[in-house]
Structures are given as structure tokens and as C-alpha cells.
């Protein structure tokens, strides 16, 4: 009987599952995370719960990088962060194809085992790049705090950029969709789950600068060329709740 795998939702957990699957050599029926519920699981299959194991995770990671390619591993990470439905099975098929074709897997741009993963990875990279511009910090008295609501789990993608850019400044980027936040204390950065975040007040000049920015933003439009359709394409409404100049 085909097995259905349930893992803890972490990337480490997922690679642990992949390790088990490739070790067993059997095609899995499905791979699901615990929090999405087993409703999507096949009732007639054997269900296996797997917790992340550091050793298996490392072995799997090494196998992808060395036997297929670093590019494949990067695509795997990005695609996983997309959190798209069934992405776990798509990645499984993608890596399975890679075991046969090596790094050529990334050239099979018309192969249905490959397309979903490359598309998902592309989307995550794209959203990540957009967010580099759309994140808005407010000075909460020495700590710069930003809220984001991305489609994908892009915190790991954007953190390196903000560490370089604001390396001498304390900041928090809070993903309110996933209740995750990246905390940076001027040296180290960690992503932690958060329920709610209480910050003590705001800097004196916070409103002053936010208002200046809003007024400036409005003034920059060339009225005779108004084109809100284009604007919406470039800065979708779903993000605007957390973007200073649209609030």
C-alpha cells in the first residue's frame, strides 16, 4: 500500500520525509503538513508521521546539492516557501526527475514534473524582490518595526538584504499572515513564532516623517497621466494595508 506522509511543516521536517521516501524507494501517496489537517489524505493509505531529524535533513540536503546541483537545492527551498497546495509532491517529482537527469532538470522547462516547482520558485523570488521595496519600518523608539502580509513565506528570502542594509540598526519584520517575526538586534537575526507583539510607543518624530512621506508620495503623481490600473498591477492592493503611503 502506498504511504501518506505527514510532517511538522518545517523545511527540515520536509527534507526528513524526502529522505525516508527515497530510502524506501516507493512512490508516496501524499505528503502533508500536520497543520493543514489530514482531510486531504487518502483514507486507504498507510499514514506515517515524521518529525524533523537533523541528520536526515543534512544528508538529504547534501545529496541534492552534490548529486543534482546547488541550483536545484535553491529552487527546492524557494518552491517550498511558496506554501502552494501540493507543493510537497511537486518538489518530490522534481527531485526525482533530477536524480535521473542531474542538473539538466532545470532545463526541462516544458516538463510537467518540473514546471510547477520552477514556477513556484520564480514566484517566491519575485515576491521576495518586491518586498525588499515594500517593507515599511516605523521607529518604535530605537527599534524599527515592520509588518508584512506576503503570499509566500518570504522572511528567509528577504532577511539577508535587510541585514546588510540596516546592519547597524535594530529591527523586527513581522509576517502577520504566519505569525512569524524576524528579530535583528544589531548582530544576530532569528525568526521566531509570535502571537502578538507589544512595542512601547513610537519615536517622537515618527508621525512627522510618515506624514512627510505620504504628502510627498501624493505630490509625485503627474495628474495628466493618471493610471491606477497600472499602479495596481505594480503595487497590488493586498499589500497596501501595511504600506505607509496607502494608509
Amino acid at each position: 500500500m502506498q504511504k501518506s506522509y505527514v510532517y511538522d511543516g518545517t523545511f527540515e521536517g520536509y527534507l526528513t520525509v524526502l529522505y525516508d521516501i527515497f530510502k524506501s524507494g516507493d512512490e508516496p501517496a501524499s505528503i502533508c503538513r500536520t497543520d493543514t489537517g489530514s482531510a486531504t489524505l487518502n483514507l486507504f493509505s498507510d499514514e506515517r508521521h515524521t518529525a524533523a531529524e537533523e541528520k536526515k535533513y543534512m544528508l538529504m540536503k547534501k545529496a541534492i546539492i552534490e548529486k543534482i546541483s546547488a541550483e536545484t537545492f535553491e529552487n527546492t527551498v524557494h518552491a517550498f516557501l511558496s506554501e502552494m497546495p501540493d507543493i510537497e509532491m511537486h518538489i518530490y517529482r522534481y527531485i526525482n526527475t533530477g536524480r535521473e537527469k542531474g542538473n539538466d532538470v532545470n532545463k526541462l522547462l516544458a516538463d510537467d514534473n518540473v514546471i510547477p516547482v520552477l514556477r513556484a520558485a520564480q514566484r517566491v523570488k519575485h515576491e521576495g524582490h518586491r518586498m525588499l521595496g515594500f517593507v515599511r519600518f516605523a521607529d518604535a523608539g530605537g527599534i524599527y518595526y515592520a509588518k508584512i502580509n506576503p503570499d509566500a513565506n518570504i522572511l528567509p528570502v528577504i532577511i539577508p538584504h535587510f541585514r546588510t542594509r540596516f546592519g547597524s540598526q535594530k529591527w523586527i519584520i513581522h509576517d502577520v499572515v504566519r505569525n512569524l517575526a524576524a528579530f535583528y538586534d544589531g548582530g544576530k537575526c532569528a525568526i521566531k513564532p509570535v502571537e502578538s507583539l507589544e512595542l512601547n510607543g513610537a519615536a517622537d518624530d515618527e508621525t512627522k516623517y510618515a506624514d512627510m512621506w505620504k504628502a510627498y508620495f501624493k505630490a509625485m503623481e503627474i495628474k495628466s497621466r493618471h493610471n491606477s490600473k497600472l499602479q495596481q498591477q505594480l503595487i497590488p492592493k493586498k499589500y497596501r494595508g501595511n504600506i505607509t503611503e496607502f494608509r
Partner: peptide, 8 residues
Amino acid sequence: CHTFTADG
């Protein structure tokens, strides 16, 4: 790009 004005 950090933002887009109403003329895109």
C-alpha cells in the same frame, strides 16, 4: 522600486 505613484 519602493512604491508606485497613481500614474504607475
